[in-house]
Design a protein around this nucleic acid. Structure first.
Lengths: 146, 146
DNA sequence: CTGCCCTCCGCGAATATTCGCAATTGTACG
DNA sequence: CGTACAATTGCGAATATTCGCGGAGGGCAG
C-alpha cells in the first residue's frame, strides 16, 4: 500500500526515526479502525507476540503520529481517543453539545474555507479531519421551549 | 455590566444554580484575562479572603462554564488553559503547528461557514471562538526546503 | 414560612497523562 | 561493516484531571 510508504517517509522526516514501536502503534490503529483509546491500543499490542510496549511509549508514539498528522485526537469523555487519518477521504463532524449526536459534514464547505483562509492569510489550514461543536436542530428547538 | 446579567441568567438556565464558587471562578477568569491554567485560577482565589476553594471545584466550575460557552478551553502544553469568551467580540485563531505563532482570522469567513452549515444541515455551529490548526507561510516554505 | 428535592461542594481516592533518566538502538558516514 | 551521535524506549515517579460519596444549601410547591 502506498500509505505504508508515505508513513515511512513521513516518520523519517525531520530527524525522526522509524522504530518498531511507532510502526506497531500505527498498524494497530489502522487495523482497529475508528476511535481507539490509548488503553485499547496498548492491550491490542499486548496480545501480540512481540515485546510488550510501555504505556508511555504508546502515548509518545501517538503524539509523534499526531504531529505528522497521521492520526487525529478526539475527546472521548474524559479520556483521549485517536483515529487514523485517511487523507484520501477527508471528512468532518458536527457534534451536538446537547445530545451528543454526530453527523458528517460535506467536505466541500470546509475545502472552500481552507482556500479562503489561504488566500487571505497565506496560512495553510489543516482541515482533513475536523470536529465542529454546535447544536442540532432538535436540541435547539427543545432549548427554545424552556 | 450587561455581561454579569447575562452570566447570571445563563447560569440559572437549565436548572443550574448560581453559586458563589462559580461566580468567583468566572470573575477571576474575566479579571485575569488571557489564558489561565486551573492552577493559576486556584491560587488566585486562594489569595482572596473568602473560603478557600477545592481544586476539583475549580475544575467543575470551569466545566460548567464551558458548557454554557462562557469560557473556552485550549491546550497549553500538557495542561488545560481557559479563556473568558467575549461574545460581543467573536474572534478566531489560526495556530501554526510549526512555530506556534497565532494570528487572528477575519470573523466574516467563519460567519459565512456557519450560515452555510445551518442552511445545509440545520445545525447551529458554535463559532464564536475557534482555533484552527495549520501551518503558516513561513513554516511551509521552511518545510518545503527540507 | 416550611419542607422536600435536587444540584453543588469539599474531600480523598482513583485514573489518566506526562516527565526524567539511564540504557538502547536507528541512521548517517567513513 | 564498524563507529559515533542523537533520538527513543522502559520504567517508575510526578502531575493533572476526574470520580464517588456524604453533607449543605438553594429554590419551588403548598
Amino acid at each position: 500500500m502506498s500509505c505504508e510508504a508515505d508513513t515511512t517517509a513521513l516518520l523519517r522526516s525531520g530527524g525522526r526515526r522509524l522504530t518498531p514501536q511507532r510502526q506497531r502503534v500505527a498498524a494497530a490503529l489502522q487495523h482497529a479502525g475508528g476511535h481507539r483509546t490509548v488503553e485499547e491500543l496498548h492491550e491490542l499490542m499486548a496480545g501480540q507476540p512481540d515485546t510488550p510496549m510501555a504505556l508511555s511509549t504508546v502515548y509518545r508514539a501517538l503524539t509523534t503520529l499526531k504531529e505528522l498528522r497521521l492520526v487525529s485526537e478526539v475527546d472521548a469523555g474524559g479520556r483521549a481517543a485517536f483515529t487514523w487519518v485517511d487523507h484520501s477521504r477527508p471528512h468532518h463532524h458536527l457534534v451536538c453539545l446537547g445530545c451528543g449526536v454526530e453527523r458528517d459534514l460535506d467536505p466541500a464547505l470546509l475545502r472552500q474555507l481552507g482556500s479562503e483562509i489561504r488566500a487571505v492569510t497565506g496560512f495553510d489550514a489543516f482541515l482533513d479531519h475536523f470536529a465542529i461543536m454546535g447544536e442540532c436542530a432538535r436540541c435547539r428547538q427543545a432549548a427554545a421551549q424552556t
